[in-house]
Design a protein around this nucleic acid. Structure first.
Length: 171
DNA sequence: GCGACAG
DNA sequence: ATCTTGTCGC
């Protein structure tokens, strides 16, 4: 899932992806004529939460886990947008960010650990930073990240393109 | 007080 | 995130 913005509104997209067949199962995208809350580090959910919750409610197919653009546990208060989205929607979630919000990297075997205040709050693998959202264990995050290896999750790349394209056409 | 800061 | 021309590389 991802959100794109324009001066007068925003667009959210959800892409259901089959990792076994490596193919898109469903794509949902919606635009909203609303001005999102301003971006404040540590409070991303206030900005992207509303549109994401709406678009995820429109997904028809069943899925195992939600991949949210942003952090989960790798957050100042261990509660990023991925964590809240999963909790509110009542769905398992994992945060997948493109840069660090808090913590530092500690080299490990197959990935780098994200350490903050003395605890492992996530991991970096390839170009992405993964951390627990809601309803998943750290090992779940490790296993999911291994699926993507050194590349960025295709479903998220699609969601990014979709939400952006929807803004141009519609709003 | 100063710097850092997901999207 | 978004604003933007040319430019590097396959």
């Amino acid at each position: 899932m991802d959100v794109a913005y324009s001066a007068d509104g925003c667009g959210a997209a959800a892409v259901v992806y089959d990792l076994v067949k490596s193919e898109v199962v469903e794509e949902v995208v919606k635009t909203y004529p609303m001005i999102p809350a301003p971006y404040v580090p540590g409070f991303l959910f206030l900005r992207e939460g509303p549109p994401l919750l709406d678009v995820v409610s429109s997904v028809r197919n069943r899925f195992d886990v939600l991949l949210v653009d942003g952090h989960g546990r790798a957050h100042p208060r261990r509660c990023g947008s991925a964590t809240i989205l999963g909790f509110v929607a009542g769905l398992p979630s994992i945060g997948v960010a493109k840069s660090l919000l808090v913590g530092s990297l500690q080299p490990s075997e197959r990935y780098d650990r994200i350490v903050h205040d003395g605890e492992v709050v996530g991991l970096r693998r390839g170009p992405a930073y993964y951390s627990q959202g809601f309803g998943v264990s750290f090992n779940d995050v490790v296993r999911v990240s291994e699926v993507f290896g050194e590349s960025y999750p295709e479903a998220l790349r699609r969601a990014d393109r979709l939400s952006r394209k929807a803004l141009k056409k519609d709003g």
